[in-house]
Computed example of a mutant assay.
Amino acid sequence: MSEFSGIKVLVVEDEGLIAMMIEDMLLELGCQVVASVAELNEARRVAATVQIDLAVLDVNLGGERSFPIARILRERNLPFLFSTGYGADGFPSEFSEYAVLNKPFSAEALKQTIVLALAASHRT
C-alpha cells in the first residue's frame, strides 16, 4: 500500500505522450486518475465539478495558460501542482507559493512534488 493509495487526481496536459507518462507514474504511486484533460475549457469544467484530491496542471495548454483552472481549484480548496517546461518565470504572483514540477521529470520528482502540494494544502 502506497502513501498515495486512493488519492484521486485530475491530470491537465495537452501533450498525449506526456499525459500518459504522468498517468502511469501516478498509478505506480497508488493514485487514481479520475480525469485526464487536454483542453482549457474542458479542464475548467472538470475542475469545477469532479471530486478530486489533487490536480497536476500543465501551465501551457496549446498556447493558453492553465491559471484559470488553478483559480477554480484554489476556490474549492483543492491542492494542485504545476508542471512546466518553461520554469516558473511569468507565473502570476498569486501562484508563487504553489509547487512547480519542471519538465522533464522523474517519478521520484513527481512524488516529492505531490508531497509538497499536499502538505501546503494542509497548512491553509
Rank of each mutant, 00 (worst) to 15 (best):
S83M: 13
E108P: 00
I7G: 00
H122T: 14
V33L: 06
E64N: 12
K8G: 03
A43H: 02
G6P: 04
E23N: 13
D24A: 14
C31W: 01
F95Q: 06
D24R: 15
S2W: 07
L110G: 01
N60R: 10
L110A: 03
A107H: 06
I22V: 15
A109K: 15
V46C: 03
H122V: 11
E75H: 11
A117E: 02
A55L: 07
G16F: 13
L57Y: 04
F105A: 09
D89F: 06
S2V: 08
A109D: 12
G6N: 09
S36L: 13
N41S: 12
S2E: 08
V46G: 00
A43E: 01
V33G: 03
R44S: 06
S83P: 07
L40N: 09
L78F: 02
F67C: 05
V56Y: 00
E39S: 10
I52E: 00
I18A: 14
L101A: 04
Y86S: 11
D53K: 00
S36Q: 15
R76N: 07
F4R: 06
N60K: 07
V37N: 01
A88K: 15
N60V: 02
K111S: 13
P68W: 07
E97K: 13
A107S: 12
T124D: 14
A99C: 09
P104G: 11
P92F: 05
E42N: 10
D89R: 09
R71A: 12
R76T: 07
F105C: 08
C31V: 06
G16T: 12
A55K: 05
D58P: 06
S83W: 03
G6F: 03
A55G: 09
F4G: 02
V50R: 15
G6T: 08
P104A: 12
A99I: 01
R45V: 10
L17S: 12
I22F: 03
N77D: 14
V37H: 01
I18P: 02
R44V: 12
L57P: 04
V9T: 09
F67D: 04
M20K: 12
R71F: 00
L17V: 13
D14W: 09
E39Q: 15
N77G: 08
L27V: 14
L73T: 03
A99H: 01
S66Y: 04
H122L: 13
G30W: 08
L27A: 13
Q112F: 05
V59Q: 04
V115W: 07
A38T: 12
E108I: 10
A88C: 03
E64R: 15
